[in-house]
Design a protein around this nucleic acid. Structure first.
Length: 822
RNA sequence: UGCUCCGUAGCUCAAUCGGCAGAGCACUGGUUUCUGGUACCAGGGGCUGAAGGUUCGAAUCCUUCCGGAGCAGCCA
């Protein structure tokens, strides 16, 4: 069977990463017949957070992208519900809803609990093969006998029970004949393994518990390591993606599949790949910490907008598309790290910028009385001058629409937009100063009213009647533009502003209680805010979406979900799905706008950046000292045989101590080295090849065995080194010869003949090659002539490629210099 | 301390087969602007964790060291 042809080019917005590379490779090799099958496998025992979103976006996104390229793809939602404790239908439903909200429809929803019968059959297979046994030690005994990371474990006294006895016991375990903890089923692998996970891992334990889907049908439940790989195999998953902490578990994943699956299924079996989980600064994402915050009512439930749970983000108003965009942007790698929260905020703003209509709301109102209102507008004091205001700034293309905003004698402006004594660089309102009212007149502050305590209670002002359009006939242009609402014709509003939950970057990282660093200002409520009247109208007229789910909080949120606004100059907002009513509007701030005036920015200041750089420099210096101090004499750990060999290599063969140590540490390699020397008596050259080229091809754990497995003898290796050392072939060509020897076992001389790899010293031929290369890369050649001499390396690379690595380096370099100088 | 994984700009990631160390975000400045928003332009930032080695040439290969994370649940 041949794999269906798959478009080699990924979609342009799909970032490339190592998992894609693996899939591309598999597609090319036809490993899974052109299929890409992934899954998102949550346990239904908690709510999802943004870290899960990364996994969802990865798994479903891969399926989408490869489907678009012509591969046969599937991505399922699979509940990993193998442990009855804590799992529930409620969680499962919430998870399903969250996945859907994020914008993905699983090809299928499956449950690991539907596979319990199959798991059991696989367990029986292992028992019959003598690869699993029933252990009757107590929990403590098992733990103690497992050993530690440095000491091997002690085999269980029950380890050698016969398959027949194990089978009998396993059947009775399943039948419910035993109490919890009386027996467990364990894989029989290696109690001394340096991988703790392989010290006879548990496969089944007894739990007399009611499972939310299977009820009391089962009283033995499979462990993760046993079940997960089999779930993948049952579902024909091709690429099983999980987070880095399962790296160690991959060993048992592979072991179970290789021993439980029938041989014919092995070539297409699933493989596990691990990627870095998403961590964010200034917040916590672990299930346990989240639970703690909810339980001691630090936050107001799982959907508290301060939390990075999916429910919290949803209630806060973050659109799913922004989360998807963010998850794609953070990348998929194997290096753990912590993403700066400003990255997330940027993603949300970026997503909302061209989607949220602009309106005006004043969060902390300060009353302004227009003293010349009647004169300037020609209206009576109680009337409103309705100004047409665009929903979109001119640079958001493709969006249209305006609404009318009432301009009345008394207005509210943002308290923050007025300073009686303006600091340097402040270009909003101050006594005697003129600003532009957004979508309206120019306004000059003519007076300040204060209470007895000296607090500003109201401003008096005048407008310029000629500036109704927002332009002045004389062309003057105020520095500041501020937003405003009518005092009489605006709606009251409660605005909830959210900030990072913690005051430190990594709240969970130290030993102390992470709740010590809670940010008291993570939620700030502005209860006296006011908003222009058009918004209430917009919300009322908004048609209901047909796909909403009635009844649930999320369903109500969906209905309102199409209404996210930018409150000009303050941020993106939407009505709170729980508490907002038309009579008493409540809006959540989704994310503030960037504010280069505000001191408190979510990004880093220049000083902070510099401080970090200095700190990193210090760390590097300290590390350098420690690295050199830690260097110790390798010979110290040698046994007498190795020591003798070391001295021989160093004193008789004349190797330097590092090389001698590497060889002496691996005695079979030293033997190979000696044998090669019989052919070509140049110890340093042979040592270089042995250590730098040969060693890389050998298994660390079993050098002797992999030496035996080589398709050539030490003598052939020695002859290769001789060819290189004596200049018959260049060292680059010698490397090519070597890799062909590894693959085919052909004698080196034959390869050189067949491929024509003799060293090329012919000056004329090299000059021709150099000229050709220079012609093919005129831009680089010009840059070289302008003094970018480091490009010589680039040209050398080209020549080497053109001559199959045979060019003599010195001659080639000289030829290039000459040709390029012309 | 055994094993596994990971160290490239402040952060997240690139860098075909060993061949010119780059991008986005963040930062600084400028242009545009009826949002201190957006967009656009420019700039600063790197001893590729360190030291040795192989090579004409190393972020990439070899050795050693340093640092960080994970693994000793009948959780997943």
């Amino acid at each position: 069977m041949t794999a269906p042809s798959v478009d080699p080019e990924p979609p342009s917005d799909a970032p490339s990463h190592f998992i894609r590379d693996i899939i591309d490779e598999d597609l090319q090799q036809g490993t899974h017949d052109g299929r890409v099958v992934t899954r998102f496998p949550p346990e239904p025992n908690g709510y999802l957070h943004i870290g899960h979103a990364k996994s969802i976006v990865l798994n479903f996104g891969l399926a989408e992208d490869y489907a678009a390229r012509g591969a046969e793809t599937t991505c399922r939602l699979r509940f990993d519900d193998t442990n009855p404790a804590g799992e529930s239908e409620e969680y499962a439903r919430a998870i399903e809803e969250a996945v859907e909200w994020l914008g993905y429809t699983p090809d299928e929803v499956r449950h690991a609990s539907d596979y319990f019968e199959s798991f059991y059959d696989y367990a029986v297979t292992l028992v019959k093969k003598g690869l699993a046994y029933v252990d009757s030690q107590t929990e403590e005994e098992i733990r103690e006998n497992r050993g530690t990371v440095t000491e091997p474990g002690i085999p269980s006294p029950y380890r050698d029970r016969s398959p027949a006895e194990n089978l009998r016991l396993l059947e009775r375990m399943k039948a419910g004949a035993f109490d919890e903890g009386a027996h467990v089923l364990r894989a029989k692998i290696d109690m001394a393994s340096e991988h703790m996970i392989m010290r006879d891992p548990l496969l089944y334990r007894i739990r007399h518990a009611t499972h939310y889907r299977r009820g009391d049908e089962w009283c033995i439940y499979p462990m993760y390591d046993f079940a997960h790989c089999l779930e993948d195999a049952i579902e024909d998953v091709t690429h099983s993606l999980c987070t880095l902490e399962f790296d160690n578990n991959r060993r048992i994943y592979d072991w179970i599949l290789e021993h439980a699956l029938p041989a014919e299924e092995l070539p297409g079996r699933p493989h596990q790949y691990e990627f870095n989980r998403l961590n964010l600064t200034y917040t916590v994402l672990s299930k346990r910490k989240l639970l703690q915050l909810v339980e001691d009512a630090t936050v107001d439930g799982w959907d508290d907008p301060r939390l990075f749970t999916l429910a919290g983000l949803r209630r806060r108003g973050v659109p799913p598309g922004a989360i998807r965009q963010f998850c794609r942007a953070v990348g998929v790698t194997r290096s753990p790290g912590r993403i700066q929260i400003s990255r997330f905020e940027h993603a949300v703003r970026d997503f909302l910028n061209d989607k949220a209509p602009r309106v005006m709301a004043v969060l902390e109102p300060l009353r302004v009385v227009i003293e010349n209102f009647e004169d300037a507008t020609g209206l009576n004091a109680g009337e409103a001058d309705w100004l047409e205001a665009s929903y979109w700034p001119r640079d958001i293309t493709g969006r249209e629409g305006t609404r009318d905003v009432p301009f009345t004698e008394e207005l509210f402006i943002e308290r923050d937009d007025f300073r009686e004594d303006p600091p340097e660089g402040f270009y909003r309102l101050a006594p005697g100063r003129e600003v532009r009212l957004r979508h309206g007149y120019f306004l000059t502050c003519t007076g300040v009213e204060k209470d007895e305590a000296g607090n500003v209670t109201a401003l008096r002002a005048e407008i310029d009647p000629d500036t109704r359009s927002g332009q002045a006939p004389d062309g003057r242009n105020p520095d500041g533009t501020i937003h405003w609402v009518s005092a009489s014709e605006s709606d009251p509003l409660e605005a909830r502003l959210y900030d990072r939950l913690f005051t430190v970057e990594a709240p969970g990282d130290t030993d102390e209680d992470f709740r010590k660093h809670l940010n008291p200002d993570a939620l700030v409520t502005r209860e006296a805010a006011r908003i222009e009247p058009s918004v209430a109208r917009t919300l009322r007229e908004e048609p209901q979406r047909p796909d909403q789910k009635e009844g649930s909080a999320m369903g109500r949120a969906t209905r309102l979900g199409v209404q996210r606004f930018q409150f000009e100059r303050t941020g993106y907002f939407w009505p709170d799905p729980e508490d907002h009513t038309p009579e008493a509007p409540v809006f959540n701030q989704i994310v503030p706008l960037r504010d280069s005036w505000a001191e408190d920015d979510s990004g880093l200041t220049a000083e902070e950046l510099a401080a970090r750089r200095r700190e990193k420099e210090r760390q590097r210096r300290r590390q350098r000292e420690r690295a050199t101090a830690g260097q110790r004499d390798p010979v110290e750990d040698f046994g007498p045989g190795q020591r003798k060999r070391f001295e021989h290599l160093r004193d008789e063969r004349g190797l330097d101590r590092d090389d001698a140590a590497v060889l002496a540490e691996r005695l079979p390699l030293a033997d190979f080295f000696d044998a090669a020397l019989d052919v070509h008596d140049a110890p340093q050259a042979v040592a270089n090849w042995t250590i730098n080229e040969l060693l890389r091809e050998l298994e660390d754990a079993a050098p002797a065995a992999s030496l035996d497995a080589l398709p050539f003898e030490a003598a052939a290796f020695g002859r290769l080194v001789k060819l290189a050392d004596e200049g018959t072939v260049s060292s680059a060509a010698a490397q090519k010869v070597f890799s062909e020897m590894l693959a085919e076992g052909t004698p080196p001389e034959q390869i050189v003949e067949k491929r024509g790899l003799h060293r090329l010293e012919d000056t004329k031929a090299l000059r021709d090659a150099a000229r050709k290369v220079a012609e093919e890369h005129p831009e680089e050649a010009a840059r070289y002539r302008e003094g970018e001499t480091k490009l010589l390396g680039f040209f050398m690379g080209q020549i080497m490629q053109a001559t199959d690595g045979t060019a003599d380096a010195q001659e080639a370099r000289a030829a290039l210099r000459d040709v390029l100088a012309e």
